[in-house]
Design a protein around this nucleic acid. Structure first.
Length: 498
RNA sequence: GCCCCCAUCGUCUAGAGGACCAGGACAUCACCCUUUCAAGGUGGAGACAGGGGUUCGAAUCCCCUUGGGGGCACCA
């Protein structure tokens, strides 16, 4: 049975890169009918962020990634928090000491941390540590530890030869052992490093496949050596391509980016939700970063993606995160929603804008905007005029169509007011019929007539479709706004035209 | 600096030696539809990083160069 895990560190809010890793693991598990395990790698006490765990669980649930074992659901191989498994790591680290695969190191952090990266670079070593404690007699080292001296445990990497592992996506990867250093497995505070903890837990939790981010390739040889030292079989492993910044330059950073239109681009999962991205759109788009079903199919349901997802079709190239394409996907999914459903999802955004809206009003408004928004948060700027009693001030010249003048416009608006005061019922179809008839009667093109009405109603040139808008707004407010437009026109110098 | 990974339109990609004067999607441009804006429809422009091999034949295999990315913590 396939068993995979997503093992984030609770050091901050979950971002898209992490979510994509989680998604691929989840997809693989669901495709194979295997288990998806969530494990919390909280072994860094300094970087621990209490907001992280709730945010993580909420983010995964938002996308619909359920876990079979892990926090809140338990499982046969728990606990699923590494901070609750310290005794295990300590026990296994000691085992490595005894077998001679690891050693105590007494060099304090100041000794290894003192070297500047530039110095390390010049020296050409893998790290600042020179292995001095590797050669201490083990019995002597054990005595020092027993005497209470502070120490870490380091892995003895082979000094010669090569280490090779098979990556499911990239094939065999080989490194010279001489380029590797002796990593710390157990810190002096008794906590394990990632290297030890992930190997011990993956083994104890019977993980069969490791799907993790690209940036782990460099430390994979250590993990190979660790499995070897323990005499355990290593799970199959695949390194997923990293998610790059939209520019394609560098990893997707956790710092917010600014779009050309000035809005902050989301990076954390919760920000995507707040910006009005649908989880189903996100799911679909994220699946396509580094994975593809075939040459033509991009829009797929969750079920289709699960059915089609295979590791063979993951490609190794890093991919830039394309917000424009995500927006397109989101627009597609918004248009697929039922009116009821979209209204429901829009409600929080309306409320956030501080507007009071009846559910019924919202429902009637939805068809006006459904194919005009790509993100839920755009609703507010599209239909703001529906939620205010009085329109903010606007330029009276907008009322006057090109190739028309103020007197003509006034006359059209007066006629339109008359028609709209009488049309019965005040509904889309009746309004359309009446206004079209009026245009014909006046001998003007429909566009010529509709523009002043639209501006009078919405305060701007670009707006949702007119007849529906009039209906939703209601006769009373429509007539009031027409009166105001006529008043504005009366103040305009008739000589000036657009 | 050292090690590793990667390399097809601006972006995401299809392509596992001949079916490719390279296909799709987003973005972009034009036109159509049309009450504005959208949505939708049609069409256009747009790529195999460079150089060597291998082969009858290379986007596809090998090597080098270049470019990009990742790593080099008692962080994950």
């Amino acid at each position: 049975m396939v068993r995979v895990r997503f093992a984030p560190s609770p050091t901050g809010l979950l971002h898209v890169g992490g979510l994509r890793t989680a998604l691929f693991n989840w997809l693989f598990a669901r495709h194979c009918g295997g288990a998806f395990i969530l494990r919390i790698e909280d072994t860094d006490r300094k970087r621990y962020d209490p907001r992280a765990l709730p945010d993580l669980l909420e983010s995964l649930r938002w996308l619909g990634l359920d876990w079979d074992e892990g926090p809140e659901v338990g499982g046969p191989y728990g606990p699923y928090f590494q901070s609750q498994r310290l005794h295990l790591y300590q026990q296994y680290a000691r085992q490595l000491i005894e077998s001679g695969a690891a050693y105590y190191c007494f060099c304090g952090p100041e000794r290894q941390g003192s070297e500047e990266p530039a110095q390390v670079a010049r020296r050409g070593a893998a790290s600042g540590y020179d292995r001095r404690c590797r050669w201490i007699d083990p019995r002597l080292a054990a005595e020092r530890v027993a005497a209470g001296e502070s120490a870490v445990i380091r892995l003895k990497m082979p000094l010669e030869g090569t280490t090779t592992f098979h990556d499911l996506i990239r094939g065999d990867i080989t490194v010279e052992n001489s380029t590797q250093d002796d990593v710390v497995l157990l810190k002096s505070d008794g906590y394990p490093t990632y290297h030890l903890a992930n190997v011990v837990d993956d083994h104890l939790m019977h993980i069969t496949h490791i799907l993790r981010a690209d940036e782990w390739i460099a430390s994979a040889p250590r993990h190979v050596q660790l499995y070897r030292a323990f005499g355990w079989q290593m799970p199959a492993i695949a390194h997923l391509p990293v998610v790059l910044d939209p520019s394609g330059k560098g990893k997707m950073s956790k710092r917010k980016k600014i779009a050309p239109d000035g809005r902050a681009l989301p990076v954390h999962v919760r920000d995507f939700r707040e910006a009005g991205y649908l989880p189903e759109a996100m799911f679909n788009y994220l699946a396509l970063i580094g994975w593809r079903y075939d040459a033509h199919t991009e829009l797929m349901s969750r079920e289709e993606i699960i059915e089609r997802f295979t590791i063979e079709r993951i490609n190794p190239t890093a991919a830039a995160f394309d917000y424009q394409k995500l927006d397109y996907f989101n627009g597609v999914y918004i248009r697929k929603l039922s009116v009821e459903d979209l209204a429901e999802r829009l409600m929080p955004f309306i409320q956030r804008a501080g507007w009071h809206v009846e559910r019924e009003m919202l429902r009637r408004m939805v068809p006006l905007i459904q194919e005009r928004i790509e993100r839920l948060d755009q609703v507010t700027s599209l239909v703001d005029f529906l939620f205010v009693e009085e329109l903010p001030d606007y330029d009276a010249q907008l009322l006057v169509p090109k190739q028309a003048d103020v007197p003509a416009t006034r006359s059209w608006l007066e006629h339109a007011r008359e028609v709209l005061a009488q049309v019965e019922p005040f509904t889309h179809d009746a309004i359309e019929q009446a206004l079209r008839a009026l245009a014909a009667q006046l001998g003007v093109k429909t566009g010529q007539l509709f523009q002043p009405v639209r501006v009078a109603i919405c305060g701007r040139l670009v707006a949702p479709p007119l007849f529906g808008t009039l209906e939703v707004l209601g006769r009373e407010r429509v007539l009031r706004r027409l009166d105001r437009a006529l008043a504005k026109l009366a103040e305009v110098n008739p000589q000036i035209t657009c």
